[in-house]
């Protein structure tokens, strides 16, 4: 698995270098994005004037920490007819973006880069650097990657000095979804010296954790992946189940909003710092 993703990252880098030499010295002036994670990195690295389209998610404060910076940039639902009129000279898509729209845009001679957006911390640095090359902002990208690395390293160093055995955390999201091994959350928990219940129950990637299994495991802390604004849904009702909440005292429950966990990037450092604070605050 790790080998495969490494291989894919290499291919991606090769592809990007080739693309960059072809367009030597020319910064893309009109960039469109079909993926929330590429939206966010664009907003971090590229001046607004050069962004011509972002996804609707970018403007949703529940999912995007830069929602207030979107302003009047046109938004898209991943439809070619929303992208083409903007006449982009570079379209960014993620590995999970709709293949159909990518094919369609390429057939109309648009330059589409399908990025392998990393789902865990490994590969984040290379991803940000190659993204910077692609959009013509390598210096800013290097600065951002360096800043995130330093913050993560600091969290790791302070967590290693934390007293006591690593506490057990249950991470619980809408519909009972919990991130197991090979996820960003698992990486961040490991960094902050916290054990992940889902990983210990052999959940790989994302799986559902029944309320019963969660209560039985008697975790030390509960980390909710909760929306702050609108919680009118069955999925969110389950997270307020009295059986869940009565297991924990005030200092043992933390809310990590989805906008911090949606993509790897600066928010990963912030999430790691919050987890460290939780770790250090425990008795």
């Amino acid at each position: 698995m790790r080998f495969l993703s490494g291989l894919m990252a290499c291919c991606l880098l090769l592809g990007l270098t080739a693309g960059a030499t072809a367009q030597q010295g020319i910064k893309p002036r009109r960039i469109a994005s079909l993926n929330l994670c590429t939206d966010l990195l664009l907003l971090e690295l590229v001046p607004r004037e050069r962004i011509v389209s972002l996804t609707y998610w970018a403007a949703d404060p529940d999912m995007s920490y830069l929602a207030d910076q979107v302003g009047d940039i046109p938004l898209n639902r991943s439809l070619a007819e929303e992208i083409v009129p903007q006449q982009p000279d570079l379209v960014l898509a993620g590995q999970f973006s709709d293949v159909k729209v990518v094919e369609l845009l390429r057939r109309m001679n648009h330059r589409v880069a399908v990025l392998d957006v990393p789902l865990t911390l490994s590969g984040m640095r290379e991803y940000i650097l190659s993204f910077g090359e692609l959009v013509g902002e390598p210096a800013r990208a290097a600065a951002l990657a360096g800043q995130i690395d330093r913050r993560l390293a600091l969290v790791s160093a302070r967590a290693r000095q934390a007293a006591g055995a690593a506490p057990l955390a249950a991470v619980y999201g809408p519909q009972g979804v919990s991130p197991g091994r090979d996820t960003l959350m698992d990486d961040l928990l490991t960094l902050a010296d916290i054990r992940n219940l889902a990983a210990e129950l052999d959940i790989v990637s994302y799986g559902t954790l029944s309320l019963e299994a969660l209560v039985m495991a008697q975790p030390d802390v509960l980390i909710l992946d909760d929306l702050s604004l609108d919680t009118n849904s069955i999925a969110h009702q389950a997270m307020r189940h009295p059986a869940l909440l009565r297991q924990f005292e005030a200092g043992q429950v933390m809310n990590l909003p989805p906008s911090l966990m949606a993509c790897v990037g600066p928010t990963s450092a912030e999430a790691a710092e919050r987890l460290l604070a939780l770790r250090l605050g425990l008795p």
Binding site: D62, G176, T231, N232, I234, A235, H241, P242
Partner: peptide, 25 residues
Amino acid sequence: VAANPFAMSEIVYWLLGSFANRSLQ
């Protein structure tokens, strides 16, 4: 048209029903 991003995926619950995660409330 509901504001909650999970609303659309809950159509299955409303069309087929479930007792999962219900509380005494």
